[in-house]
Design a protein around this nucleic acid. Sequence first.
RNA 1: GGUCCCAUCGUCUAGUGGCCCAGGACGCCAGGUUCUCAUCCUGGUAACAGGGGUUCGACUCCCCUUGGGACCGCCA
Length: 475
Amino acid sequence: MKTSVRTRFAPSPTGPLHMGNLRTALFNYLFAHHHKGKLIVRVEDTDKERSEKRWEEDMLSNLTWLGLTWDEGPYRQSERTKIYKASLEKLLNEGKAYWCFCSSEQLAQEREEQEKRGEAPRYAGTCRSLSKKEAQEKLKNGVPGVIRFLNPGRKISFEDLVRGTIEFDTSLSGDFVIAKDSENPLYNFTVVVDDHDMKITHVIRGEDHIPNTPRQILMQEALGFESPQYAHLPLLLGEDRTKLSKRQGDMSVTRFRQEGYLPESILNFLALLGWNPGGEQEVFSLKELVEKFSLDRVQKGGAVFDAKRLEWLSGHYIRETPLEELTKLALPYLEKSGVPIESLDSKKLQSIVQLFQERLKALGELPELAGFFFKTELEYETDLLKWKDMSSQKASESLERASNVLNGIVEPWSPESLEKALLETAGEDKGGLLWPLRVALSGRKASPPPFDIASILGKNEAIRRIRHAQHLLTS
RNA sequence: GGUCCCAUCGUCUAGUGGCCCAGGACGCCAGGUUCUCAUCCUGGUAACAGGGGUUCGACUCCCCUUGGGACCGCCA
C-alpha cells in the first residue's frame, strides 16, 4: 500500500498571516485533500525574540474563518526542544556537527574579505579541527558557542514536483549554523527533524525556500532520514513584481477579512494565482478546487497579486450569496459604523442589503453606501438637486410634483406602485422628476432608484426629506 | 558580486510540434438597458522578450543573449 499523503503548513508567528502564506496553506490543503491525505499545522516559533502568541492566534483564527481545516496540530517547535536536542547530540557524537566558538566580529571580518575577493561568503571552518575534548572544555568555561553542520560539500540534486531537477553545489554553503546552542536549534535543522518526525511526504512551500533545500537534504542524509518530495511554489508578487511584503501595503488576511471580502472569494482568487485547471472556468468552490488540484499544473513564474480581480470575484460571490445570509454577514459592518440596527426591523434591513447586493465589492462598503437610510439629516450640496441645468425654482417644482404623487399613492406602498405612479407623471421627462427626488431622498449623486429608497423609507419620511430639499432650494 | 529559479495581452492564464495571423477572465475603452450608480448584455483594445539552431512545420524542443525574481543571517 502506498503511504498516504501528509503535507504541512509551517509558518513562523512573527507577523500577521498574509496572502502569500495563505496561498501556501491553501495549496497544501488542496493537495492533501485531493489525495485523501492529511494537512498538519506546525508553528515554527524557534525564534523566541520575534515569535508572538498573538500572531499564532491570528493565523489559526484566519485559517478557521476561511474553512481551511487541518488534521493535526498545531504543533509548536518551542515545545519540542527535547526532540531536537536528541538529534543534535547524535550529529555531534557522530562528528557530523561540531561546536564553533568564533566570535561574530571574527566572522564578519572573514565575510568581508571573501566578498572583497568576489567569493561566496561562507564559514572558513576554523573550529572544525577542535577536538571534542577541547570543545567540552570551552563550554564548561562558559565560552559562548554555536553548533555547525559539517558540510560534506557535495553536489546535490533533487526532483522538484513543479520545476523538475534542481542542482546545487553545497560546497558553496560552508558549514552552516544549525543551533545557537544545544537548547536552541535553528530553522533549517528543526524543519528536517520535524518533517521526518511528522512523516511529511510532500513539502509544498514558496520558491524562496529553494536554496534551503540542498542543506536540508544534506542533514537528512546525515541523520539517515528519507527525503520528502519537494514542490516549490512561485512567489506572490506585488505591483512592482517583487515578493509580496510590507512595501506593497497591508496584505494581511485580517485586513481583507475586516474589509468584508468573503472567504470563498479569497480562496478562489488565491487558488488561481500560480495554478489553474486548464479550462475556461473562473469560479470554483473549495470542493471543486480540491477535486481538480494537481501540482503538475502549478505555474513556474511568479504571480502578481491583482487586487482588481479579487474585487471582481468578491462582488461575484456577494451577488451569489442568499439574501438572508448576506444580511447576517453585513450586520456587524453596519453595527460597527454606528447604525442603530436594534431599532430596525429585520425585514427592512434585508431590503436595504438587497438594494446594495449588486453594488458591493466588499461588505465593508455597505455603511458608506447605505448610510443615508439611517440619518435623520442628510448633508449634500443644494445644487445636486438640480437635474442638468435646472433652476432652483424648477427643481422645487419637480419635487412638489413628486411629493404629490407620493401623497396620492394608496396601497400598496411598494417599489412597483411607486415606479408606476412616478413614471406616469414624469412622461418623457424622467430625469427632471426622478433626479431631484432621488437626491432629496439619498443626498447622493449615485444611489439605487428613488422607488426603492422611498419604498423602504416609508411615505412620511420620504415626504419629510422632500420638504427639507425644497427648503434648501428656496432659502 | 556569487548561486539558483523564471519568461504568452497591463494582470491571472489556455496552449505540451501543425487545430493559433494565439483562446478565456480581470482591467480598460465604446455601445445597449437606465434619472444616477451598480448589475446585466454586445463589441473593441492588447501578448508568444531577442537571436540562433532542430524540423516539411515552432508559442510549443535545444543553445545563447537580454530581462526579471529569489537566496546568500547565530531569521524563517
